[in-house]
Simulated assay, not measured.
Amino acid sequence: MIIRGVNSQTFIAANLARVEQFYRDHLGLPVVKRSVHHLDEKLATITFGFNSFAGAAPRMETITYIEWNPIFYMVPERGFMEEGQTKQDVASPRAGDPKGRWGAGTNHHLALHVPDRNGLLKWKRRLTDLGIHVTGPYNRNYFHAIYLRDPDGAIIEIATSEPGFGHDEAVLGSGFRKQPKENLIGGRDEFAVAFETWPQPIAAITDDFALRGFHHITSISSDAERTERFYVDTIGLPLIKKTDYLDEKGGTHFYYACHEDLMPGSVLTFLGLPNYKPGRLGTGLAHHFTLEVENDAALDNEHRRLQRAGVPISPVQHTRYTKLFQFRDPDGHICAISTPSDFTVDEPASTLGTTLCLPDHLEEHRVQIERQIAFRPAPTPLLD
């Protein structure tokens, strides 16, 4: 298999300072980069990583937020995929609501990973005490999970390792697996779920329940079989699970893996909601997720392969910290394939995320860029 894992997920936010407080202070994730978008320096970005733990392999996934701060301008519906179009759209946005709306062709949530159910209950108690609304813990058959929202409304899940994907079939993805009725909407005891939490306050994040990395990324499909053909036949991911969507009668939930050991962080899932209305890109939603290949040669090979398959794709782009190209799935959801990220190219590992890092060609404009980030003026349209 060429794809070797999930590299990152990128969201759109209205206020990066608010997002930083959420991830750093509430969820305990370190900032690993402060910069600007590689396609337009007017878009500030912040990236979060995960801490390492004794006895566990380092997790390299990252969460990036792009700031879109004009209050009465829509996020460009085409997204930020190519430089010329991005600069034009950022300079001359359409009037409207910047808030996103999830639907077919958008993400649904990002799931972060904790080892066990006690960790979920500790997170529920900690976040609830901080004034953040949390639902769950729910039994999702292959894991247990709680749900919350980031400051812009994006859904964040925290999910456990156990019991895993293999407990209900010997050959993963070999057939449709019905969910136990007690897990389905209408069958579970919502009062019992809401009541369960950790008995004592949780003031500090300790290693036993700290977030380990990604668990999975979930998006929405209006045609599960069409999405399956795309990700299995075109992208090359194995389908490891077909089951019910637990929160919508008649919906499906298909799981795809990026490599064979099925470690948390290597899984993409799609909620199949037939003929569901399209979503709208905006704040409170992901812009795209990124799959990772080993090196530049593998990236170039994938770029040529998808071109031959007739997939509309962007040029290969150098972001300073990785190389990538973007494309859309059959519902229009933006995806990317990249090389591994390296955030130490412009600041040492010991001080990652402490300064605003700019590529060399933008250093002469640092004062102007810092003012843009600080004062966040409304866009100025490009002259014809």
Score class of each variant (00 low, 15 high):
residue 289 F to H: 14
residue 261 D to T: 14
residue 281 L to A: 07
residue 307 Q to M: 08
residue 275 N to T: 10
residue 253 H to S: 11
residue 307 Q to F: 00
residue 266 S to N: 04
residue 275 N to S: 13
residue 307 Q to E: 13
residue 276 Y to H: 15
residue 303 H to L: 01
residue 314 S to A: 04
residue 286 A to R: 03
residue 290 T to I: 01
residue 263 M to D: 11
residue 249 K to D: 13
residue 298 A to F: 04
residue 249 K to F: 12
residue 308 R to M: 05
residue 319 T to Q: 06
residue 266 S to H: 03
residue 300 D to N: 13
residue 280 R to C: 06
residue 246 L to N: 12
residue 313 I to Q: 07
residue 304 R to T: 11
residue 317 Q to P: 02
residue 321 Y to P: 00
residue 256 Y to S: 03
residue 264 P to Q: 05
residue 252 T to N: 12
residue 259 H to F: 12
residue 299 L to N: 03
residue 295 N to I: 06
residue 276 Y to Q: 13
residue 313 I to D: 02
residue 323 K to V: 01
residue 263 M to F: 13
residue 323 K to H: 15
residue 271 L to P: 00
residue 284 G to F: 05
residue 250 G to F: 04
residue 283 T to A: 00
residue 276 Y to E: 07
residue 321 Y to G: 00
residue 256 Y to K: 04
residue 318 H to Q: 09
residue 269 T to H: 10
residue 308 R to C: 02
residue 249 K to V: 11
residue 274 P to H: 07
residue 300 D to S: 09
residue 312 P to A: 10
residue 281 L to P: 08
residue 266 S to R: 04
residue 242 K to A: 11
residue 316 V to P: 02
residue 318 H to N: 15
residue 315 P to D: 13
residue 295 N to V: 06
residue 245 Y to W: 09
residue 310 G to N: 03
residue 313 I to W: 00
residue 305 R to H: 01
residue 301 N to R: 15
residue 250 G to D: 04
residue 270 F to S: 10
residue 267 V to C: 13
residue 290 T to P: 01
residue 304 R to I: 10
residue 322 T to A: 14
residue 257 A to E: 06
residue 320 R to L: 13
residue 287 H to G: 09
residue 270 F to K: 05
residue 267 V to K: 13
residue 254 F to R: 05
residue 297 A to G: 00
residue 286 A to W: 01
residue 271 L to V: 14
residue 265 G to H: 03
residue 290 T to N: 07
residue 315 P to M: 06
residue 318 H to P: 03
residue 313 I to H: 04
residue 266 S to W: 02
residue 323 K to G: 02
residue 301 N to M: 15
residue 248 E to A: 14
residue 292 E to D: 02
residue 252 T to Q: 15
residue 250 G to R: 10
residue 306 L to W: 11
residue 243 T to A: 09
residue 317 Q to N: 06
residue 302 E to V: 07
residue 249 K to N: 12
residue 319 T to K: 05
residue 303 H to Y: 07
residue 258 C to R: 01
residue 285 L to R: 12
residue 288 H to D: 06
residue 253 H to M: 14
residue 276 Y to D: 00
residue 249 K to A: 10
residue 300 D to A: 14
residue 242 K to L: 10
residue 311 V to N: 03
residue 282 G to M: 10
residue 245 Y to S: 14
residue 288 H to G: 04
residue 298 A to E: 11
residue 298 A to N: 05
residue 297 A to W: 11
residue 282 G to W: 08
residue 308 R to W: 05
residue 246 L to K: 03
residue 281 L to V: 08
residue 261 D to R: 09
residue 261 D to Q: 10
residue 280 R to A: 11
residue 307 Q to Y: 02
residue 305 R to C: 00
residue 263 M to W: 11
residue 313 I to S: 08
residue 259 H to I: 05
residue 304 R to V: 11
residue 255 Y to V: 03
residue 259 H to E: 14
residue 294 E to Q: 13
residue 275 N to Y: 15
residue 308 R to L: 09
residue 257 A to T: 07
residue 302 E to P: 02
residue 246 L to T: 10
residue 305 R to P: 03
residue 312 P to G: 09
residue 290 T to C: 14
residue 270 F to H: 11
residue 266 S to K: 02
residue 264 P to N: 05
residue 285 L to P: 00
residue 323 K to T: 07
residue 280 R to H: 07
residue 295 N to F: 05
residue 297 A to T: 14
residue 272 G to Y: 12
residue 254 F to Q: 01
residue 273 L to S: 15
residue 309 A to E: 10
residue 308 R to N: 11
residue 298 A to D: 12
